[in-house]
């Protein structure tokens, strides 16, 4: 097996097991009030962090560029209760324009 296949298959297997692992926690643990509170916050913090990393980083460095303009425009659109597709379109157009300048 060459190295590319090894990387492909082994990472796929590990990532699949990680996904299954999330559903393997006993119900009584998940029903604990403290775990429930933490659990509700987890996707919020992970996705907030994801937004910031996707917007402001490149190759393990902080980079401020056209993406920030696009995401800021999206935040503004959300603030004014724009529909979801319109908000996304705003982000894409603003970011693409700033990129081309």
């Amino acid at each position: 097996m060459n190295s590319l296949w090894a990387a492909t298959l082994i990472t796929s297997a590990i990532c699949y097991l990680l996904k299954v692992l999330g559903y393997s926690m006993p119900e009584r643990v998940l029903n604990h009030p403290r775990i429930q509170r933490i659990n509700t916050l987890i996707p919020v913090v992970l996705l907030s962090a994801l937004v910031s990393v996707q917007t402001l980083s490149a190759k393990e460095e902080i980079v401020v560029d056209h993406r920030l303009a696009g995401v800021a425009a999206a935040a503004l659109a959300l603030r004014f209760k724009a529909s979801f597709p319109l908000m996304m379109l705003t982000a894409a157009i603003v970011s693409a324009l700033v990129y081309r300048i």
């Binding site: 056209h66 999206a74 970011s95």
Partner: peptide, 10 residues
């Protein structure tokens, strides 16, 4: 590259 983080923000 901005639309994807914008989607998660939304």
């Amino acid at each position: 590259d901005a639309a994807v983080p914008a989607a998660f923000l939304g």
